[in-house]
């Protein structure tokens, strides 16, 4: 089995607030393999975007990160800002959620894509930068090529256009072009389709799939939409209150969900064929500054047992017929629920 290109070990991101420390990300372990698409699913505020920002070292003070972020075995949390900057956008690129606010309104789109190339000196010539007239031209050609690739029609004409002159879908394509410009090995996509119409969503997802296949870029897709993740990803990690509550291959998680939260999320997806009523998860996401003792999902859990509110639960491998569930990729299906570690469900008796 291949080695992961990106591995998170015990990644914890803490923000001090007036009401105490908030663990937006709590001891997250993840591995991303070359060419893999990993979905990070959860409700808003569960820390999934913070995971992405933590990977890039973009957590603003006073927030801080502990644990390890290993890129090819190199711990990014130990790197200087300068070294991190060299990786950002070049090795690991990020695609943000809201394209309109993420593109800088004051600069033409083409220039913003070109900036990625320039920052990483992707097309160095024989001459030093300020005197190299040909460089700008080479960079522009590469930008036009990327714009074409992400499906922006008439890139030459749009090179000088400003973000507000683009439609939402085109803005998102431009953002993806910024991410793709330096041919990164890892793309971090933070809800890239949330702000878009359904039809445009499908186009963007198809585009990202193509990028994954043609460039071999591994992708972490953050989304609140389990249906989208099931469609697009190879593996899924479900997050709740800063922790991963279930992780496994798509088949394992979707077809045999173990955590009551995953089960609840699945029941929230409309099914066009069956037209069964949606069953929302009651209650809302807990306050991260004031997490309940024990399982964070316990207050909303339909299978709640008194023990759930007492201890701390680890991610446990799902055991079926006395064996761990291992996907052919080697991924072990794991969940963080008391049922897996021992206590018997009432209906089991």
């Amino acid at each position: 089995m291949a080695r992961p290109i990106l591995e998170l070990r015990n990644l914890t991101t803490v923000f001090p607030t007036r009401r105490g420390e908030v663990r937006a990300v709590d001891a997250v372990n993840l591995a991303l393999y070359p060419g893999q698409i990993l979905g990070l699913v959860g409700e808003s505020g569960c820390g999934k975007s913070t995971v992405l920002l933590s990977i890039l070292g973009l957590i603003a003070r006073p927030g801080r990160i502990t644990g390890e972020v290993l890129l090819d075995g190199r711990d990014l949390t130990k790197l200087s800002n300068r070294e991190l900057r060299r990786l950002r956008g070049k090795e690991i690129a990020m695609i943000f959620q809201d394209p309109l606010s993420t593109l800088n309104p004051a600069f033409p789109v083409g220039e913003q894509i070109r900036e990625s190339l320039r920052l990483h000196n992707m097309l160095p010539g024989p001459w030093l930068w300020p005197f190299d007239a040909g460089r700008r031209q080479r960079e522009k050609e590469r930008v036009l090529q990327v714009m074409e690739e992400v499906g922006i029609p008439a890139p030459e004409a749009r090179y000088r256009a400003y973000p507000h002159q683009f439609s939402g879908g085109m803005q998102q394509r431009a953002l993806i072009a910024i991410g793709l410009a330096c041919n990164p090995r890892i793309l971090l996509a933070d809800e890239p389709t949330t702000a878009l119409d359904v039809t445009i969503q499908a186009q963007i997802i198809a585009l990202m799939k193509r990028i994954n296949q043609e460039h071999g870029a591994a992708i972490i897709l953050v989304t609140h939409d389990l249906g989208l993740a099931a469609e697009f990803c190879d593996h899924i990690a479900v997050m709740y209150a800063g922790r991963i509550v279930e992780i496994g291959s798509v088949d394992q998680v979707i077809e045999n969900p173990q955590h009551p939260y995953t089960q609840g999320l699945l029941r929230c997806i409309p099914n066009l064929k069956e037209r069964r009523p949606l069953q929302p998860i009651p209650g809302s996401v807990p306050d991260l500054a004031d997490l309940p003792l024990g399982c964070a999902f316990a207050p909303r859990c339909p299978d709640f047992q008194p023990v759930c509110a007492e201890g701390f639960f680890r991610l446990q491998p799902v055991i079926e017929n006395g064996r761990k569930k291992v996907h052919r990729s080697g991924e072990v299906h794991m969940a963080r629920c008391l049922r897996l570690t021992g206590y018997r469900m009432p209906e089991d008796d």
Binding site: L56, R86, R88, A93, M94, F96, S101, T102, L175
Partner: peptide, 17 residues
């Protein structure tokens, strides 16, 4: 605090830029 400054940093821009 805006997203585009966050994007600039994510692109690899330095603090000054």
């Amino acid at each position: 605090r805006s997203d585009y400054v966050k994007l600039a940093r994510a692109k690899g821009a330095g603090e000054f830029s």
